[in-house]
Design a binder for these strands. Structure first.
Lengths: 238, 238, 238, 238
DNA sequence: AATGAATGAGGGTTCATTCAT
DNA sequence: TATGAATGAACCCTCATTCAT
């Protein structure tokens, strides 16, 4: 059997094992057995447990980023729609490959070499989102002086929320985490619905940023809604 | 040395070890040594590794919930201020006890007995937040028919975002996660600032809920800002 | 509380523990707790686990030998009746103090210092039995040249059989050993019945010895009953 | 080195260790070292200490039963000779494999799973003996109404006595038990001699059963030998 | 007379990893 | 290409035993 095929079998088995049990608790014995090969072969192809885990992480990072990029790449769409498509792709991927996502989730707590990989991925994704948000703001007639830093903050929040929601959808690792909600809803929401929900949040935030509206701890006399400035002309509707 | 003191030393050492290395990788030998006692004593007081971890989890759950409750308990404050204070307390706690929070974070992936404990805590916190948000909406003159379910959704998002931010602040477990930002900013934002940022988010979301404003994927011709309904009279300003 | 009382409590607890779990598996913690004292006190009175076990063994050896001697000491009885009384006393003791007997049983497999103690006891008992058997043979008109060695062999067999039966009666350590029989009989036979059964055996053997009757492997033509020599005049009847 | 060979080495070492030190005191380290392998290999082949002990017990049970069966299987022999051969085989086995027998001896006090195995073996052996005794009685012209239960009792006593004698022969575990005798005799009796001695006992008992002769505690005036009924025609001579 | 506090030592078990083939 | 055989190291846990009071 050609090396590539064998190698993919091993990675598949490893991803499943790491997702289910975590890095430490997953045993090379189990992985080899699940892959249908002997242990020395695993060591021949992937040099160690660390390398095997890293290979899993990299593969899943690539798959996730590719999925998101693919979603946003469509031509002829406005920025907000691209963003929505990217989110949809993200949630669809998350639902389709729960084990792969779980591996990334585990990698984040696994220290030096692994966490860095996931962090890099995150940086990449945040950059994409920031660019799209900025573009959307511009499209909506937002004055360009809107601090990039603020948009970046919004992007971070959006990505964090997306991760949170994805974690929730991944019932394997998080089935007890949202136990209250899980009890109430019989089926998980579709990727599109979830993405729309997030868009809503994000849009509200963006609008606020553009309007300069803020919540402040000190209750002032004039905390009513600020008079909406020049109403956004473009897509972000209210 | 009296038992109680020793026991706290052990829990402290254990929390640190579990936070740093995770449940599996932390060794009882190291914990005992860090606590300045011999291993048998650890087993004498806390019966097993599982029990020790559970004791850590429960202690940190208690401390975290207590901190948040304490923040919200102040009298004579409006609901939104209570919420802000609660968030501030949460972030302050998170910054003050990064190891404790990391333990809770680890516990969520450690399976049945532990994840349940954290899930229960989360349910508790979400309930608190939901109540405050609902009260705030009412204070702002929101029609009571605003679905409680939607407020609860917002509460979930808020809590998720708070966790995300806290994770970021916890430099120990997440130092590589936001490597980009960590490199850029020399100091972490204060708990109050972080809380205010989150309040902004949450307020934007709440306003949207009250206005019934939504983002929808299909670009319609009239996606401009909906005519603001009865402008909120109270605190949630724009 | 006076030392003697405490010491007996400890020995009682130790005998129970050793009987139930064996020397190795019985823990000093459990013994101390069962005795209602703290562990250091056990070490203060009985110096070590070995010494504690030895004290148990010696106490139970003494009790057993005393019981048997007491049974045989009655005056005005024929030798066979003394023997029967001794056996009865032995089985009664065995039934009354199963834990004590179990300790002796365990001690036999516990190596040097302990096995020797039980062996010495056994030698003592065998000597008593041998004397009684010899006396009984003489009383029955047996020619004195009956080899003492043969009588001693019979005594050994008798003692071995008694031990076997006692082990059976001691349901704690041997409840599965004779599972077939245990299923059939609802109640254990009384000490007197058991003793009588054994007397029967021993008497048959003694008679054979006196008659010089033997079973031999080679089937000779004249293997019919040997002409009974001078029929035993006395008690050992056929 | 092939697995089977290694596995037998391990079992050999384990049998020796368990025989010498008992189940609890024998350490897996020592067993592995004695077997000339590392500890993990022992765990790879035999899954745990319990399983290892059980494997030893089963192997030795099988070997012992096979030896006895082999002894009795000879054709063209009368029942009593078969019995004698079986006993001889038993004692020969006992002398040849003292450690194996000691393991069975230890197993009897080691609780549920192990004691049951030995008990089952004993039931099997008793059944063989009972059958042979019954056949022998019939051959000797014994009236068939001789209660099977009584024969079974005799069989039990015989087996118990055999065990006792075997224990004595097994110098390793019982070297102090019969210290008196061991000191007196320079060489252990051969298996054949021991078997003949036991046959003698057993034959005496069988004869008594057939004649209905009994020893009773109460000394009556007419305790002389009962008039021998129809003298046994066959092999069991007196 | 009695104990709470504490430990050195060792046992069973598992795991990542390698050799020889 | 692929594996059966084998291990060094480490981990969780327990126990007999002592010290200071």
């Amino acid at each position: 059997m050609p090396r590539e095929v064998r190698e993919r079998q091993m990675l598949d088995a490893a991803v499943a094992a790491f997702a289910r049990h975590g890095y430490q608790a997953a045993s090379m014995d189990d992985i080899a057995e699940a892959a249908g090969v002997s242990k020395p072969l695993v060591y021949l192809y992937l040099k160690s447990k660390e390398d095997l885990f890293m290979a899993c992480v990299r593969r899943e990072v690539g798959a996730l980023v590719a999925a998101v990029r693919e979603g946003t790449r469509a031509r002829g769409l406005t920025a907000d729609q691209q963003l929505w498509r990217g989110l949809t792709a993200f949630f669809a991927h998350t639902a389709a490959r729960p084990d792969g996502v779980a591996v990334l989730y585990r990698a984040r707590t696994q220290g030096e070499p692994f966490a860095r990989e996931v962090a890099a991925m995150r940086v990449e994704v945040v950059a994409i989102v920031t660019a799209l948000l900025g573009q959307a703001a511009k499209d909506a007639g937002c004055p360009s002086e809107l601090a990039e830093r603020e948009v970046s903050g919004l992007a971070h929040a959006l990505v964090g929320a997306a991760e949170s929601l994805a974690e929730w959808a991944n019932s394997r690792t998080a089935e007890h985490f949202f136990a209250d909600e899980a009890a109430g809803s019989t089926t998980a929401p579709s990727a599109k619905e979830t993405a729309a929900t997030l868009m809503n949040f994000c849009w509200a935030g963006l609008e606020n940023l553009m309007k300069g509206a803020r919540w402040t701890p000190a209750p002032g006399p004039a905390r009513g809604p600020a008079p909406a400035p020049a109403p956004a002309r473009g897509r972000p509707g209210g």
